[in-house]
Simulated assay, not measured.
Amino acid sequence: MRNPELARFFRDLAAYLEMDDVPFKPRAYEKAALAIESCDRPLAELHLEGGAKALCTIPGIGKSMAEKLAEILTTGKCQAHEVYRLRMPVDLAALTAVEGVGPKAVKVLYDHLGIRTIEDLAAAARAGKIRPLPHFGERSEQRILKALTVVQAGTARQPLAVVLPLVEAVVETLASVRGVERVAIAGSIRRRRETIGDADLLAVARKAEPVMRAFAGIPEVARVLGRGSTKCSVKLATGLQVDLRVVPAESFGAALLYFTGSKAHNV
Rank of each mutant, 00 (worst) to 15 (best):
H81Y: 13
I61K: 00
G137L: 08
V98C: 13
K146N: 10
A7L: 07
A156M: 15
L73N: 04
M19A: 12
Y16A: 07
M212T: 01
V242G: 03
L202G: 05
L145R: 08
P210G: 11
G137A: 08
E5G: 11
R193F: 02
T96Q: 09
F252Y: 06
A237Y: 07
M88N: 05
P159K: 08
N3F: 05
V224H: 00
L201G: 00
V183P: 00
L109R: 14
F24D: 10
N266C: 15
G253Q: 09
F24N: 08
L145K: 09
R223Q: 05
S233D: 00
A122G: 12
L240E: 00
A254R: 10
A237N: 09
A214F: 02
L160P: 00
I130P: 07
Q79W: 12
G60I: 12
E138Y: 04
A186V: 04
E181L: 15
E82P: 01
R227N: 05
R191K: 07
V101H: 03
H47W: 15
T260W: 07
R190Q: 02
K263Y: 12
L86H: 14
G226F: 10
V171H: 01
S64T: 13
P23R: 11
V98Q: 04
K129C: 12
K231T: 04
G226M: 13
A97S: 13
D243H: 10
T57R: 02
L257H: 10
G179N: 06
V108Y: 03
F136A: 07
G228N: 06
R85W: 07
Y29C: 05
I115G: 00
A199I: 11
R85N: 07
G100F: 09
K235M: 15
Q158E: 12
P219T: 12
I118L: 15
V246L: 03
V177S: 04
D20C: 06
L202D: 01
